[in-house]
Nucleic acid binder design. Structure first.
Lengths: 133, 133
DNA sequence: ACTGATATTGACAATCGTTTTCATGTAGGG
DNA sequence: CCCTACATGAAAACGATTGTCAATATCAGT
């Protein structure tokens, strides 16, 4: 049950590079397509595996879309934070929520729950998209 | 583009009954299986369609699991609320979060976002499961 | 550098939840 | 009772993700 040692490969470097160059959240398939567009021949399975590993290491953030598709994003802050995402253009703002964190703790304590974690995402329409209509 | 009129059928009644009898969150497949166990022959597609309709009408709450599977639950309170779910046994507590609601509004306003909504779920381990180890 | 143990890759098949298709059944207003 | 839309169910289609497995590449130790 020991975690396998992680190796540095061209493929992972390429994937990492693409994820960094893309702002906002993108699916594994998106990233694979972008990779292909740039001439890379990385396999789709590899993209999935690399992204999963990066997410496990906390190098990228994940977001579950309504339809169940998983989206990945390179975040500026490695610490725990949440996202404010524009429903239309996908523009993403990283937000810190100390209020929410303490609220979560309190709720858990009140109901005698242990080892708590939470998921929180905020969706809306950004100023730019609103201006356009 | 007008919403179709909703009809009352035996199938939907059966599905509704099962959902009510099951506490906590369950997948469409779970519900279909439970239906079968009780002698009903409702088709899987029908279960999916009925649950989607019920969710659209706000009659049941939905929860997206990490692996993308959608879970459904009959909630006591029809109003907006969140859930504190035990990771182990699935026990669910409905919690109200005025703090979170106002925080969300503030964050959205600060970044000039419009028409905001949010998803928030809290996971943990309940007292009972902790006692068992 | 060479080597060996082992992590990684990629093409493809398999899985699995969910949606669609379409012919048939049925609710419910007139 | 009769329409006419909506609903059903079986099966096929779908789409994201994961597994398989032989070939390959990484890297620590020599």
């Amino acid at each position: 049950m020991n975690t396998p040692i992680r190796r540095n490969t061209k493929q992972r470097a390429a994937i990492s590079e693409v994820v960094q160059s893309l702002s906002n959240f993108h699916s594994a398939q998106d990233i694979h397509a972008e990779l292909a567009k740039r001439g890379s021949t990385v396999g789709l399975s590899t993209v999935y595996r690399a992204l999963a590993a990066m997410a496990a290491d906390g190098d990228v953030d994940t977001l579950l879309r309504d339809d169940g598709e998983t989206l990945y994003r390179q975040c500026a802050d490695a610490a725990h934070h949440h996202h404010l995402v524009c429903r239309q253009c996908g523009a993403t703002v990283e937000v810190d929520g100390p209020t929410v964190e303490t609220w979560t703790q309190r709720i858990a304590a009140e109901h005698d729950f242990d080892d708590v974690s939470h998921t929180l995402e905020v969706f809306g329409r950004c100023a730019q998209c609103r201006a356009q209509g």
